[in-house]
Design a protein around this nucleic acid. Structure first.
Lengths: 235, 235
DNA sequence: CCATATTTGTTCGTATGTATC
DNA sequence: AGATACATACGAACAAATATG
């Protein structure tokens, strides 16, 4: 088979999206309608939609339909990463939602990263970051509980990491290291990011330290690979 | 359906791979054998294998079988990125293969990045980077043809960018900027990287400049998201 | 709020094409 | 050349989530 039918269907739909005849948020025709339009079985359409879903161009919801996804955001990555400032610099409106907040003993990995003793405790904050109301990343941040007393309360109230850290006495901080990788969205991640499971994610593992070099935050962020471009400036 | 059968099958096979009972390079049982083992239709097994393929854990070849893929490599990313040094620092043997080498007029994008005039020419080098013989990234590098006379010849002979640049008079260079994104491997990319189409890629767009700030190389690199972790050090 | 139609998700069966061994 | 194995495509049925009246 020189090329499969489903690739041609995906290509047709992809062009309709990138050329703008289908706008972000628009609902695609149903699978049944598309299979009639292209004269193929529903499975063949599904294979094409699956690929577009993995590419991040469309997002399917059972019972609802398939929808065109939103546009790409630039996200500067450097020693001084600030989410709200980053997103506003791109002309978009930043927001965050914290889904989970708990205090518990640190795991070995967390203790090592945050330079805690064996009985150290951490505050874990998990949630979603948005640009213009569109989810662009999941975050899971760990803070040293004893070193930053009141951090959980502060996070719950202000929802900006920079402000929360300022409230507990960390006026400034910088990123010491970032590790980057790629993987695929599992169903839970996909649901929170409004992506299809199997969409590409770019994750970053980062450590932020105060001006004295003491760790204040250690976390992972999972960006939608198709909605975000990470920008690095070595200057 | 609380959870689908294919996810459980994928989870079982994934565990067998990550726990080491299936080694990199091993061939998995055939789809027919797996469907008998799990007591399901062949399509259900295929759905599971498809997911593992997207994750980069296995790689299927028509007519041959499905094979367990190789392990993750760390790749430091910073102002002074050197491929051969990076890979050797991780205790692996670096190599490169150049698949395509041509000189042609610069596109508008290339001319802007390399700061060329309207009639500027570039040398394009495309190929694959390996660690221990395992492909980890595709690269497509542009060099200013007039500014670096003889660069094509040099690239063909030494296959290390650092050495080739040294031959044409660029004794040192540094990276000015890097942009990072995620996407899925198309069939051509997947074939060169020995991945399944649809596997997650992390791409970087980078600009290297000489000590005077003059651009000497502009290119894209597509890393296998599952085989490579990019490491960033802000110090 | 509830009943029902709609729409996507999963699984099975079957057949055929195509690359590899 | 033949057997094996993966890739694609069609058809049918049911489950699960959603939308609609």
């Amino acid at each position: 088979m020189t090329d499969a039918i489903w690739t041609a269907i995906a290509e047709t739909l992809r062009r309709e999206i990138v050329e703008g005849s289908r706008q972000p948020g628009d609902r695609l025709p149903t699978e049944a309608q598309l299979s009639r339009r292209f004269g193929v079985n529903r499975h063949t359409v599904r294979r094409a939609l699956s690929r577009l879903g993995e590419e991040g161009l469309v997002h399917s919801r059972r019972g609802a339909g398939a929808f065109v996804a939103a546009r790409r955001t630039e996200y500067p990555l450097g020693a001084r990463v600030r989410f709200h400032r980053n997103i506003r610099a791109g002309g978009r409106l930043p927001s965050r939602r914290i889904d989970h907040l708990e205090e518990r003993p640190a795991t070995a990995e967390e203790a090592e990263a945050l330079e805690l003793g064996p009985s150290g405790r951490i505050v874990l904050a998990e949630g979603v970051s948005f640009a213009d109301g569109c989810p662009i990343a999941l975050f899971a941040s760990r803070f040293p509980a004893e070193r930053l007393a009141g951090i959980a309360q502060a996070l719950a109230e202000v929802a900006s990491v920079t402000e929360a850290l300022a409230r507990v006495g960390v006026g400034d901080y910088a990123r010491r290291s970032t590790r980057i990788g790629g993987e695929l969205a599992d169903p839970a991640q996909a649901a929170k990011l409004e992506l299809s499971p199997g969409a590409p994610l770019v994750w970053t593992e980062s450590l932020n330290v105060d001006p004295g070099g003491v760790p204040v935050e250690y976390g992972f962020t999972y960006f939608s690979g198709e909605r975000v471009t990470l920008v690095l400036d070595h200057s």
